[in-house]
């Protein structure tokens, strides 16, 4: 099976500080890969470097076998249309309603008529259980609702890959669990490849097919959750031990 995302020898720095040190990893289709590690280990930075929100110093990032480092904005835009991103804060545009937030990618990237756009938005909001908030503004929603609305926006173009940055951070356990269920159903029903950045142990146990464990910018482990727990790596053992309730 060919990897959908292939990262080779990725190095990222903030000034003189190396935040990602020689990361190499392949992510395969239809899997949920969880990037985990303690705060400040480089999880979000890795995500931003993969998507070129921050340019890495060196290395290679390939989507579907195509090298993306060095692509111009138009070429990168063509790749990004097949990708969805759920930001940690939701990153909804506050000045427009939830309906309008979700309609933006459809209006700007497709030639679909308004009636069909309307139907797609309603379906996507229904998928994230947020039908009642369709005409509300982001400021009128709770944290969990904002995350779900942002998820509806992220999946509105049926992306093949979905990136989620700390989807359950700051949410109560029930809302976090329901968001995890949603991520699982997206994988099952839409056959998405999903990359999740988190350090929530409960989420990791619920959704992870594969995990990538980072520690101070270095990749300590890449494999299954069971494999990580049996690998005998002290940092990983401590992470799971301390995080267990």
């Amino acid at each position: 099976m060919d990897a959908v995302i292939s990262i080779k020898n990725l190095i990222a720095k903030y000034g003189d500080i190396t935040v990602l040190d020689d990361i190499s990893v392949d992510i395969f289709p239809g899997e949920i890969t969880v990037i985990l590690g303690s705060s400040g280990c480089g999880k979000t930075t890795l995500l931003k470097n993969i998507l070129r929100l921050v340019e890495p110093v060196s290395g290679s990032v390939k989507f579907w076998g195509e090298e993306v480092l060095g692509l111009d904005d138009i070429q990168m835009g063509n790749i990004l249309r097949k990708i969805g991103m759920l930001f940690q804060s939701g990153a909804l545009l506050n000045s427009i309603s939830i309906y309008e937030n979700i309609s933006i990618p459809l209006e700007l990237h497709t030639k679909l008529p308004r009636t069909l756009i309307d139907r797609i938005i309603k379906v996507k909001l229904n998928l994230v259980n947020l039908s009642e908030a369709i005409y509300k503004f982001p400021s009128e929603l709770s944290g969990g609702m904002k995350k779900r609305a942002a998820l509806a926006r992220a999946i509105v173009l049926d992306p093949q890959i979905l990136f989620c940055d700390e989807p359950s951070a700051g949410l109560d356990p029930l809302t976090a669990a329901s968001l995890d269920e949603l991520i699982l159903s997206l994988k099952k029903q839409l056959k998405m490849t999903i990359v999740v950045v988190t350090h929530e142990l409960a989420s990791i146990h619920r959704i992870a097919d594969k995990i990538i464990f980072l520690e101070q910018g270095k990749m300590l482990f890449n494999g299954t959750l069971e494999g990580a727990q049996k690998a005998g790596i002290p940092q990983i053992d401590t992470f799971f031990k301390v995080g267990r309730f």
Partner: peptide, 18 residues
């Protein structure tokens, strides 16, 4: 059929716009 089931909007109910 699975895709239709997931994405069909025929039976959805939404609040009316103000």
């Amino acid at each position: 059929q699975e895709v239709i089931k997931t994405f069909s909007s025929l039976k959805l109910e939404f609040p009316a716009q103000e």
